[in-house]
Every structure is written in C-alpha cells, then in structure tokens.
C-alpha cells in the first residue's frame, strides 16, 4: 500500500514537472511590460528604489493586507494556549552574553540604516524588521531576554502600530478618490512614516513568533 502510494506520487510528480517545464519553455513574452511602467512612474512615487516604490506605493494594498495577515498569524499562535510560565533561562556561556551585549547596538544601527536606505537602494522595512527580530532572538538565546507569555499593553501597541499607521494613512487619503494614492509632494515623507512604523511592528511580530513559542511546552 505504502509502496503503491509512493510510486503513484513519484509518477504524478514527474508528469507535473514535465508539464510545467514544457509550459515555461513555450510561454510567449508578456503583453504588458511591467519594468518599463515602473520606471516611467518612479519619479512621482516619492522614492528612488523601484522595489520600495512597488511595495509601498504602486502595490501598497498588498503590503497593507500582508501586515494584517502577519498579525492574524501571531494572534492565532497566541490563542493556541499552553501559555505556562517560561522556563528560566539556562546558564549560558558568558562569552556569548558579552558578544550579544556588544552586538545589540550594531544590530539596531543596521536596522536603522536598512530602513533609511530603502528609499534609494536595496533595503527597507521588511529587511530592517527581520534584522531587529533576529536581534531579539539572539538576545533570548544568550539568556538576556526572557521568553514572552502574554503581551501587555505596550507590547500590544507595538505589535499593531505599523498596521494602524498604514491604515490611518490609507484612511486619510481616501478623500483623494483612490486607496493609497499619495500626493506626489508628500509621498516620500508618508512612505518613510509608514516604513518606520512597519519596521518596529514587523520586528516585534517576527520576534514574537519565536518568543511566544519557545519554552512554552518544553
């Protein structure tokens, strides 16, 4: 039975791969040339880096909903329960703790740089948030930051801040007639405001995914 299932899956998988490869090779070129469209409108997007322009301006919708999805994932994780008091941090190598203490300012500095750089070169809120979250995980592993149990008021505020700022900007601009269409003069500042909020919230959410889980049922 198991052998039969295995060979069936292998045969279906190979046919799927063959079909997809043939389809990819035969595909005609795209009718709409997106890179040209982006380059054409980049000047009025408020930023100089095309990926940031797409993320926060041309397709700001997707990013707004994505942050909502992240919040939902974290909320679902919190409702799973089993929230016992986290185990006290085990004795950790003092060398690791010293390294973590010295690395922390550098991590925060790197995140700040990535956030600022996003306007004109690779970088932005997502990478900065990921670096912040990695820093928090590092601190936890070094025994300097206890695992989280239930979020208190300030943590809750931090978790939703990015989403709320984004939503507030979207709501304030509804009078313009379309969702998230920034006036070109204000676009740069608004994008930086949204990205700053997103960096903090994404960092906390991504860190929370690890810190709420760890030590829960071990």
């Amino acid at each position: 039975m198991n052998g039969l299932l295995r060979s069936a899956v292998v045969i279906v998988g190979l046919s799927l791969a063959a079909a997809m490869v043939i389809a990819l090779l035969q595909l005609p070129s795209a009718a709409v040339h997106l890179p040209a469209l982006v380059a054409e409108n980049l000047a009025q997007s408020g930023v100089e880096h095309p990926v940031t322009a797409v993320l926060l301006n041309f397709r700001g919708w997707d990013t707004l909903l994505e942050v909502a999805v992240l919040l939902l994932a974290l909320l679902t994780l919190l409702t799973l329960g089993g929230g016992k008091a986290p185990a006290p941090a085990a004795a950790v190598d003092p060398l690791l703790q010293g390294l973590a203490r010295r690395m922390l300012p550098l991590i925060v500095l790197t995140a700040g740089y990535l956030l600022w750089a996003g306007a004109h070169r690779p970088g932005g809120a997502f990478q900065a948030g990921a670096v912040l979250a990695a820093g928090a995980v590092f601190l936890q592993l070094a025994g300097l930051l206890p695992a989280w149990t239930a979020p208190r008021r300030w943590l809750r505020l931090g978790l939703v801040l990015g989403f709320l700022v984004f939503l507030a900007v979207a709501a304030a601009l509804l009078g313009q007639g379309a969702l998230l269409r920034y006036p070109p003069a204000l676009a740069g500042g608004l994008i930086l405001l949204i990205e700053a909020g997103l960096t903090l919230s994404l960092g906390l959410i991504l860190a929370g995914l690890f810190l709420f889980l760890t030590g829960r049922d071990a």
Partner: peptide
C-alpha cells in the same frame, strides 16, 4: 534581487532556522 537576498538571509536562514 538584492532586496530578496537580504530578507532571505535574515529570515529564511536565521529566523526559520531558530524556529
């Protein structure tokens, strides 16, 4: 795609690995 490379290095290798 240096943007994705940065995110993948921090998230795909770092955070997912820790999780």
């Amino acid at each position: 795609a240096p943007d994705i490379a940065l995110a993948e290095a921090a998230i795909g290798a770092g955070l997912t690995g820790a999780l």
